[in-house]
Each structure stands twice: as C-alpha cells, then as structure tokens.
Amino acid sequence: MRAFIADTVALVLFFTVLGALNEHYVAGMAWSEVARSRAIGAPLMVLTARPYGVWRDWLMPGLTPPLPRLATDALSLLIFQVPIYAAILWLGGASGAGILKGAAVFSLMMMVVGRPYGVWLDFVRARFGLGPGGMKPMTLGD
C-alpha cells in the first residue's frame, strides 16, 4: 500500500503541473478546458501511477545497462504515458490538431523530463521508506 501511495503522490504532483502548462500554452486549451482535463486526468493518474511504477521497475533492469538510466526513464515514460495523455486531451475537449500537437510536445517533454521524474519518483518513494525502483523486480503488492 505504501508503494501505491508513494507512486500516486509522485505522479499526481509532477504531472498535474506539467500537463496543465502544456495544455494551456502548447495545445491552446482555455483554462476552463485545462481544469476539465486535469479533473479527468487526476483519477486516471491515481489509476495508472502504480502500474507505471511497476512498469518502470520491470523495464529498468532489462535496459540499464546497456542504456543509461536517463534513456530508460525517458523511454518508459514515453511508451506508457503519451497514449494516456492523448486520451485526456480528447476527453478534455481539445481539437484533433490540438491533440496531435499536445501529444507530440508531450512526447518531447517525456524525453526531457523522464530522468527528472525518475529521480522525483525515487525521492518520494524514499520518503515512504521504499527503495528506488528499477533495481529489482517489484509486484503490485510491494
């Protein structure tokens, strides 16, 4: 349960801010649309935070090495989060062009923020008395 809470707190805090800025300034959504998409996104983040943590923890040992943690964190975010984010934009009322533009920029952002989020996730996990992810296989019961 601690792993679920830690992963959820880390994801919700980090990506609520990042998503809102992207939606308003890049996808061109009005603040009311941003609020709606964040309201839709929050429950989705709660539902996907721990599965993402498990996904990242499973992916890390297989790719690090040969890939550095920087690349593995970026790749894990890109594959897992971008499809979810595109759905959030669609449900939030973004136009087709806005969804494509927002998802494309979000993809680039995942490449840039992958490692910072990995560091943040490990930091939050440590506050909950958990070790960093990606060092050993983890299960939903951790």
Rank of each mutant, 00 (worst) to 15 (best):
residue 114 G to W: 10
residue 136 K to P: 13
residue 57 D to F: 02
residue 114 G to S: 11
residue 23 E to M: 13
residue 140 L to Y: 15
residue 35 A to K: 12
residue 14 F to D: 00
residue 28 G to V: 03
residue 73 D to N: 07
residue 103 A to I: 09
residue 101 K to V: 07
residue 69 R to W: 00
residue 11 L to R: 11
residue 81 Q to N: 04
residue 48 T to G: 02
residue 111 M to F: 13
residue 111 M to E: 11
residue 2 R to G: 01
residue 56 R to E: 01
residue 74 A to K: 03
residue 139 T to D: 14
residue 90 W to F: 07
residue 129 G to N: 15
residue 115 R to I: 10
residue 132 P to C: 14
residue 76 S to A: 11
residue 70 L to S: 00
residue 126 A to D: 12
residue 23 E to Q: 15
residue 38 R to H: 02
residue 36 R to P: 01
residue 43 P to F: 10
residue 35 A to Q: 12
residue 74 A to N: 06
residue 16 T to E: 08
residue 66 P to E: 02
residue 29 M to E: 08
residue 72 T to N: 02
residue 78 L to M: 02
residue 20 A to T: 10
residue 120 W to P: 13
residue 124 V to R: 09
residue 62 G to W: 05
residue 122 D to G: 13
residue 23 E to R: 12
residue 76 S to D: 00
residue 135 M to V: 14
residue 44 L to E: 03
residue 134 G to Q: 14
residue 15 F to E: 06
residue 93 G to P: 05
residue 142 D to W: 15
residue 118 G to E: 12
residue 45 M to D: 04
residue 63 L to A: 06
residue 43 P to H: 03
residue 54 V to K: 03
residue 109 M to W: 04
residue 44 L to F: 05
residue 52 Y to S: 02
residue 49 A to T: 01
residue 30 A to P: 02
residue 122 D to S: 13
residue 115 R to Q: 13
residue 54 V to A: 02
residue 83 P to K: 08
residue 62 G to L: 05
residue 31 W to M: 13
residue 32 S to T: 10
residue 104 A to T: 13
residue 73 D to F: 04
residue 140 L to I: 15
residue 15 F to W: 13
residue 5 I to F: 09
residue 131 G to C: 12
residue 7 D to C: 07
residue 6 A to S: 12
residue 131 G to P: 14
residue 75 L to G: 08
residue 94 A to H: 05
residue 55 W to V: 00
residue 15 F to M: 08
residue 64 T to S: 06
residue 35 A to I: 11
residue 3 A to R: 06
residue 92 G to I: 03
residue 6 A to N: 09
residue 12 V to T: 12
residue 56 R to L: 10
residue 73 D to L: 01
residue 75 L to D: 05
residue 96 G to W: 11
residue 102 G to S: 07
residue 58 W to L: 04
residue 78 L to C: 01
residue 75 L to F: 06
residue 48 T to P: 00
residue 103 A to D: 04
residue 53 G to M: 01
residue 61 P to Y: 08
residue 142 D to Q: 15
residue 28 G to C: 05
residue 107 S to P: 03
residue 52 Y to M: 02
residue 112 V to S: 03
residue 40 I to T: 06
residue 46 V to P: 00
residue 33 E to D: 11
residue 95 S to G: 09
residue 14 F to Y: 12
residue 116 P to F: 12
residue 14 F to G: 08
residue 9 V to Y: 02
residue 113 V to D: 08
residue 125 R to E: 14
residue 45 M to K: 04
residue 137 P to K: 15
residue 68 P to I: 00
residue 113 V to M: 14
residue 47 L to Y: 02
residue 3 A to L: 07
residue 45 M to Q: 06
residue 43 P to R: 12
residue 92 G to P: 04
